[in-house]
């Protein structure tokens, strides 16, 4: 489905991405774990076409899209903040991509209301973004992306700004929506638990290099991911309780 070949990028003398080659299958969600500054965001922006790589290729469904402009890739990039357009209400935010494509009004209405229903937001259609909670805004942001049926969805720490309860709800919602819509997605996070919950496969990004694990057991076993350390912390805590 989506493949990269030897992607590299240097920014202000620093190697941000170094020879990244990987592949995601159709309807698969790859979660990428990494600390701040590890190159996760740059990778997503290169895939979306918002940044250019110094070397390498991006291939989508067998077609080299390395030089295809971002607005023609069908790859949607979602930020940590929902970034709902402040001048549009919820309905119009979700309808945005369909209006760009000059879809008939009836198609827009049907699609937007179906998504509002699926995202549990049917009552919010006429509200403005500032009238929504953080979780609701993020749902609208998903709706705005999903309505155009993106070939790949790139999620850059989408739940990073949410409280833990909302975050858990949103993780469940995204898992469900990804299954319903057969999404192909890359989910970037610095939260270990979230990476394991969200990804069908997992990757670890460090200093511009990406290591992808085909099995969850391999991800857990690798000391660099920090899973063992985290698990040991909780085991020790249990022992202290006894």
């Amino acid at each position: 489905m989506l493949q990269t070949k030897n992607i590299s990028k240097v920014f202000q003398g620093e190697q941000v991405l170094e020879g990244l080659s990987f592949r995601i299958n159709e309807h698969e969600m790859l979660s990428i774990l990494g600390r701040s500054g590890s190159g996760k965001t740059t990778l997503l922006k290169v895939l979306a076409g918002l940044e250019t790589a110094d070397r390498g290729q991006v291939i989508l469904e067998g077609q080299d899209i390395t030089t295809v402009p971002a607005n023609r890739r069908g790859i949607v990039y979602l930020y940590q903040e929902a970034l709902l357009f402040p001048h549009l209400n919820v309905f119009e935010n979700i309808a945005f991509g369909l209006r760009l494509r000059k879809q008939p009004e009836s198609v827009i209405k049907d699609n937007v209301y179906a998504l509002l229903e699926r995202l549990e937001l049917p009552e919010q259609a006429q509200k403005m973004p500032e009238q929504l909670s953080g979780g609701q805004r993020q749902r609208v942001a998903f709706g705005r992306a999903l309505v155009i049926e993106p070939r790949v969805l790139l999620l850059d720490e989408p739940f990073g700004a949410l409280d833990s309860e909302t975050r858990t709800n949103m993780q469940d919602l995204l898992k469900g929506v990804a299954k319903d819509y057969g999404l192909t997605a890359i989910f970037v996070t610095h939260d270990l638990k979230e990476a394991m919950l969200m990804g069908d496969r997992m990757g670890m990004m460090q200093k511009g290099k990406l290591n992808i694990y085909d099995k969850q057991a391999d991800f857990i076993a690798d000391k660099a991911t920090g899973v063992l350390e985290e698990a040991q912390f909780w085991i020790n805590l249990q022992d202290l309780k006894k």
């Binding site: 971002a70 607005n71 069908g74 949607v76 991509g97 760009l100």
Partner: peptide, 8 residues
């Protein structure tokens, strides 16, 4: 940027 990836 977001609008661009949505197709604008």
């Amino acid at each position: 940027h977001l609008a661009t990836t949505l197709g604008a």
